[in-house]
């Protein structure tokens, strides 16, 4: 049994999906931990396996996909191989998730107050009346104005930003240990984005919540995360504290991502990454980035291990060209 004080430990998790009879690994050998009050950012292009990682941890994978190796420990309980009842009892109680699309993630035919309080009825055995009272407090916590009057309102009566607040209240209803936020601000206006992120940061401070933040916005990463993991084609290619990552992006893909990010001070043009992520069936062996990598070499046909950068055990990279330096 691992340290129960660490709310989420993922060890060597591989998630595979069966498409037309063939098994594809969409997440390979992923390991990370999330500590209380820590935000771990998971970045990468669309289709790199970020959302699959989140759904694997939550146990909400589509029917064709499953975790085929590794462990996912929530408060020391391994979810891989646990029965559905165990997983259900942790979901929404210890582990919660907010989704990218606040417009479609709330049920259009159920009142907001009921949706927010439902997890409390499920996990804490609260009555409908008690859950409603708690839902009002939660909506006030996420700063929904006139919360008491809006308990009986329906999602279509809320704006996108308000719905995302409701989603956060809903996910946080029980005393969560880990919140998984899958691009929580992508669908929102820039000003609302900042409010939502500030709200999550506040809650993190007072509730001791650990957050796995999935995003492709490196600006968000720089402002709220302590650690970064860069994913490409289902592999973690670089893992580092935020300061070290921005000071010294080491994997060729990380450098390319940063070069593709707009900057105010830089007069130089944006540099898009040439090519695109290969389709699942066409992933090269070994390092999956080598078909687009300027440093590709014959030995990249074998998957490089994660190795420390310049002797820093906190900053790891998966690249033959960079780890030898």
């Amino acid at each position: 049994m691992t340290d129960a004080a660490v709310p989420l430990v993922v060890e060597g998790m591989t998630t595979s999906i069966r498409l037309q009879g063939r098994l594809h690994h969409v997440v390979r050998d992923m390991s990370f931990v999330i500590r209380p009050r820590e935000t771990l950012a998971l970045v990468g292009e669309s289709g790199c396996g970020k959302s699959m990682t989140a759904l694997s941890v939550m146990g909400l994978l589509p029917p064709a996909a499953s975790i085929t190796a590794g462990r996912v420990l929530v408060d020391g309980v391994d979810l891989v191989g646990a029965d559905e009842a165990t997983r259900e009892s942790l979901r929404g109680d210890r582990l919660g998730m907010i989704f990218q699309e606040p417009m479609t993630s709330l049920n259009p035919v159920l009142p907001i107050g009921f949706q927010v309080g439902e997890a409390l009825m499920r996990h804490r055995g609260l009555s409908k009346r008690q859950a409603r009272e708690k839902a009002r407090e939660l909506l006030e916590l996420v700063r929904v104005p006139a919360a008491a009057e809006r308990l009986d309102a329906y999602p279509h009566q809320f704006s996108g930003g308000m719905r995302q607040r409701v989603m956060i209240a809903l996910a946080l209803a029980c005393r969560l240990r880990v919140l998984i936020a899958d691009e929580p601000t992508t669908a929102l206006d820039v000003t609302i984005q900042a409010q939502v992120l500030a709200l999550v940061a506040d809650l993190q401070r007072c509730e001791g919540l650990g957050v796995l933040l999935i995003t492709h916005n490196l600006g968000v990463v720089a402002s709220v995360a302590q650690r970064v993991m860069v994913m490409y084609g289902g592999d973690v290619v670089e893992s580092a504290p935020v300061a070290a990552f921005f000071a010294r992006p080491t994997h060729p893909y990380s450098s390319a991502l940063l070069a593709a990010m707009p900057r105010i001070e830089g007069g130089s043009q944006l540099q898009p990454i040439p090519g695109q992520v290969p389709p699942l069936g066409d992933m090269p062996d070994g390092c999956r980035f080598r078909s687009r990598c300027p440093l590709a070499h014959e030995r990249c046909a074998a998957l490089p291990p994660m190795t420390p950068v310049a002797g820093d055990p906190d900053h790891l990279v998966r690249c033959w060209a960079r780890s030898d330096a």
Binding site: L60, L90, G92, N107, L110
Partner: peptide, 27 residues
């Protein structure tokens, strides 16, 4: 739909997800 995924993320069992969250939308 996304709201069914949300319902499952709360830890609701199959019966509640189907009858309370999905079915009323089919009415």
């Amino acid at each position: 739909e996304d709201y069914v995924r949300t319902a499952r993320s709360k830890g609701l069992g199959r019966r509640l997800v189907v009858w309370r969250h999905a079915f009323p939308n089919v009415l």
